[in-house]
Design a protein around this nucleic acid. Sequence first.
RNA 1: GGCGACGUACCCAAGUGGCUAAGGGGACGCUCUGCAAAAGCGUUAUUCAUCGGUUCGAAUCCGAUCGUCGCCUCCA
Length: 466
Amino acid sequence: MSISFYNTLTRKTEEFIPMNEGEVRMYSCGPTVYDYFHIGNARSFVMSDIVRRYFEFRGYRVTYVMNITDIDDKIIKRANEQGVPSSEIAETYTEAFLHDSARFGIRPADVFPRATETMDEIIAHIQGLIEKGAAYNVNGDVFFRVSAFKEYGKLSRKNIEELEVGARIEADTRKENPVDFALWKSAKPGEPSWDSPWGKGRPGWHMECSVMSQKFLGETFDIHAGGNDLIFPHHENEIAQSEALTEKTFARYWMHFGFLNIDNEKMSKSLGNFFTAREIVEKFPAEVIRFYYLQTHYRSPLNFTHEGLDAAKTGLQKLQGLYDALREASGGTGPFDVKHFEQRFITAMDDDFNTPAGFGVLFEMVREANSILHGSGGMEEGSREALIDFLRRSCIGLFGILREESGGGATGELVGGLMDLLIGIRADARKEKQYALSDRIRDGLKELGVVLEDSRDGTKWKLSNE
RNA sequence: GGCGACGUACCCAAGUGGCUAAGGGGACGCUCUGCAAAAGCGUUAUUCAUCGGUUCGAAUCCGAUCGUCGCCUCCA
């Protein structure tokens, strides 16, 4: 049994065979830090993180690198608008990126290389391309000579001739060919710049990713991931400028994440349907948003709706409910075959990280487990522990969608004490059949956002907004 | 114009040649409960945008049509 997934390079689902057995070297395109990232970015970051975690779940050792583009036209533009140094913009939003990622439950990469800290390697790479005849300097701007790389277009399936006649390429008379792209941009007055053999300037956008990935993962590595829109030109250009120099395969497998739309339209500031990750995570727990993302396959477009999030929230409560109940339960007699479900779960996930199919298995498991757990015999101790262990590994370690502390556990001693008192009073009232009083307590608490659930073992409470 | 993706129930969404078309949400009925909630059980697609074709067999392959969307040098 092995993991297979769709490789954009071959347009086929392929069995994953790592360069080094048991090891995955993976690079994911990170943010350009000129603004808060939005819920579409968040989807890509979450899915990329899930891919990394699934490899770990399956026993691989993963080296995961995500770049931070901290010098770029957009950063300079934002800096000029606000009248501050571009380094300040970059710092502010790098910090915001790390903070918001953490709130989304996205695990930090092993390395977060930054473009400004990789300048020597970038310059050396460009120098190498010039020496090979694959790049040329025009008064301090260095361009990649696309005609020097015969395989240009192999990722995006475009051919150079068609690109040349494309109307959207701006004529730049300095270029030998309109499809050539910038590796090094000469500094305009007032722009941040670094010294280079071609004068002061800064790297082109595509350049940094090639260099940063190879710096930490080697000239050839296993997986390169990013949003769908990066296939062309970004990833195409990365391949060209990398392979033209090394004459080796750059990334062996390419993964691309589907876009997130809102009301079936692309999210954009001009349409007014733009949401940052930090504003949405104020309204919904990160676990709910993650679960919502995971219910759609990573390559499919995801239409983001408020109703969808509500539905995800309800669905997730079912999973959390089982997890909570399992931990509170005591030994019983009913056996439960966790292994069977875990096997089916792995089969689903091994097939192109099919998280929706994985949840299909998980929810079938939830139903059967609840049925045994709440049944007359309860669940046998070994099965219960095995199931808790599987839920921990799958829904916490892998997906990050369940909480260890749910319900009122995290609200503090005073609230806990008050709740015990109220529940005690209500229990006495119920014993005396004073249902008007007991319902008054339950209804009143409900209005305050506290839900009571009576069971054979007593009354449990939880907060309704979780 | 070029390249590509998609259309499965009321909503979301797996399935891509062969057992009864997963799963979640919603709705309705039932069990449990003092009543609820939670949980369970049952019902909710003889049919997969439409029309043809290939095949013993098609949601799945091929063709056409309709519709939606993405990329084609800012983009996750």
